[in-house]
Design a protein around this nucleic acid. Sequence first.
DNA 1: CAGTATCCAGATCGATACTG
DNA 2: CAGTATCGATCTGGATACTG
Lengths: 132, 132
Amino acid sequence: MKKTKKWDKARLLCEALSEEEDLLVNEVATRVADKWSLWTLATLAESGEPLRFSKVMATVEGISQKSLTKTLRQLERDGLVTRRVYAEVPPRVEYALTELGVELLEHVEPLWSWVAKSVGDFARARKEYDAR
Amino acid sequence: MKKTKKWDKARLLCEALSEEEDLLVNEVATRVADKWSLWTLATLAESGEPLRFSKVMATVEGISQKSLTKTLRQLERDGLVTRRVYAEVPPRVEYALTELGVELLEHVEPLWSWVAKSVGDFARARKEYDAR
DNA sequence: CAGTATCCAGATCGATACTG
DNA sequence: CAGTATCGATCTGGATACTG
């Protein structure tokens, strides 16, 4: 088997990180893999303009209020979305993607597409494994 | 804010998936974000040849035997690694990357590199958020 | 409207002990 | 050597009820 040079590059980058940074990288990676986080980001990206909490909740089917709140807080904390509160009655809160959020989506897309495209391979592997 | 065309492409791919496939895609994405899974795959990639259980365990610092077993089983089930058992005493079991596993690493690398490179941005965002 | 607070069931993970 | 089995602490996420 050949070594994957591309991976070595990432390894070098990772080894240059402090322990604290490594933790942070891992947490961001968690966002990337989290269904709700990604779906929320994608919802904001597709909209192209700020969305209210209730609008996001309606778009991201199946998410609970609690989970959406948590997800949005995490994304905000990581600098991926902005949260703007308007002093109105009833209250209005709008969420929007940041530049960093857009960048993240753009970097996630190729991987996600590959996984989606390869779903047949994965399904086949599973079927084979489970058959034994 | 501009719409992210690239993301739309992934969205279209996702919407073409069956519910079952969607689940599978999500599970693979979980592997991608899992620290142990990725580290295990990277270990096998760097080695360039099959590795014994104990060797992997020694390389992936901090992983418990239980977690490594689970991780390897998942990776095997998803067709990312192979598991070969030699009928010897004491037993020898060797793990190796599959082609699919190599491909996955190659597709993960750009994203991972970007996250690592952007760790400063994320740290700054956090610091700002936490300051409030 | 956009949350917060509380409860609770299920998944997860490390540590430990045991085995083919 | 390469696991499996088990226990307890921890984390997660949904459902529900309440509030500025």
